[in-house]
Simulated assay, not measured.
Amino acid sequence: MPISTLPALNELDASSWDALRIDQQPFLCHAFLSALEDSGSVGGRSGWQPAHRLLQDGRGRLLAAMPAYVKSHSYGEYVFDHGWADACQRAGIDYYPKLLGAIPFSPVSGPRLLGDPLAAGQLLDELCASLTQQGLSSLHINFTAPADDALLQGRDGWLQRLGCQYHWHNRGYRDFQDFLDALSSRKRKQMRKEREQVAGQGIEFDWREGHQLSEAEWDFVYLCYANTYHIRGQAPYLTRTFFSLLAERMPEAIRVVLARQGGRPVAMAFSLLGGDSLYGRYWGCLAEFDRLHFETCFYQGMDYAIGQGLQRFDAGAQGEHKLIRGFEPVLTRSWHYLCHPGLRAAVADFLEQERVGVQGYAEDARGLLPYRQG
């Protein structure tokens, strides 16, 4: 059964794609991925060319799939391989274009290989065998789920890379104060003081679901989101249209908290809800307020998760400052298949050394957690 390439997700009906999903994570659903394409956030001149891979039987029934993009750069991936690309350039080896199995701009672990495991394994093997013929240097699969790891582990040529994020876990807390009571006295006082500083500036918070925001409020959300890139001299990855399309296609998964001062919105945090988890994605503020970032991005999400009985809050990649606020280190995994044998050998050696460092860092990071001992 040959693999086919889907250049636009809307060429496949949503029910066929979504039938392969095995969990409730929102990022892999047809609505999210197609909104990225239809809004122009990927495709065109973005350097993310949709090239989803499908495996179908003789009757056209979809057996396995992988969201995939042909990449001409390494931006927006959050698994950093710029050093590999630079080494290839110095050695006269073409690193781009490469093929990436991932959710664009979303460093969230979850399934990347959809469908029956045997069919997904066949898709993987056939895809690797055809990379050179397609003019692709490599295949990378980022932020995989345990089921994907099981498929990739031990397959010839595949290299595993570890990373570290910080997730907050709800240990059955009754309310935010119950969470604070689980912390050491000093950290508990610090968090309480941070929340009081925000409240003392007259800032209040308003949680909304996707269908509860007007287009004018979406304009504000986008302005805040884009501002986080503009202040660093960068262009935002997502277009304004993406947010409207997402609100139209999957409003039940959207959670936005608006920070208001005197009734006027001054900041926001955008999250998605899936299963027992809240995923904090984007934040932005149009003026500087002391400690508002911590309250809007962390404490509000933790409070919401407790109130809704959610088990986990993934507030995004990076940020060691999350540790002292109760976010625990979590190892992430990505997998890399490099066609050039010399490059593969060099990267394999690098990853072996990096793995030891990442594991040691995650273990040391646990010592910075604010929870009471014993």
Rank of each mutant, 00 (worst) to 15 (best):
G101I: 05
D86A: 11
I93K: 12
Q24S: 08
D38Y: 02
A87I: 04
F27S: 00
A68N: 01
A35G: 10
Y78F: 14
G44Y: 00
A85K: 00
I93M: 10
K98F: 05
S39E: 11
Y69G: 01
Y78A: 01
S41V: 11
R21Q: 13
H82T: 09
D57C: 08
R90T: 09
A102C: 12
D23T: 13
H52Y: 02
G43E: 15
A65K: 00
Y96F: 09
R53S: 09
D81V: 12
F27I: 02
R61W: 08
A68Q: 01
E37R: 03
S46P: 04
W48Y: 12
A51P: 01
F105E: 09
R21D: 09
F32I: 06
V79W: 03
E77S: 11
Y75S: 15
S41F: 07
G92F: 07
Y75W: 15
L55H: 00
R21H: 15
L99Q: 06
R61Y: 08
Y75Q: 15
F80I: 14
Y95H: 08
D81T: 13
M66T: 07
M66G: 03
W84G: 04
D81L: 12
I93H: 11
A102R: 07
A87H: 05
R90A: 10
A35V: 14
R21W: 02
D38I: 04
I93G: 05
S74H: 14
R21T: 12
S39N: 13
L63R: 13
C29L: 11
A65L: 05
G43A: 14
C29P: 04
L33G: 12
S46G: 02
G83T: 01
S74V: 14
G92P: 01
R59K: 12
Q89V: 11
R90H: 10
P50C: 03
V42C: 06
L54E: 04
C88P: 02
W48L: 13
V79A: 12
I93Q: 13
G101P: 01
F32L: 10
A87Q: 11
R59C: 07
L54D: 02
L100V: 13
Y69A: 01
K98C: 12
R90V: 08
L36R: 01
K71N: 10
E77K: 12
W48Q: 08
Y96Q: 06
H82W: 15
F32K: 04
L36P: 00
F105N: 12
G58Y: 06
K71D: 07
F105D: 07
S72T: 15
P97Y: 08
S46D: 07
G40N: 03
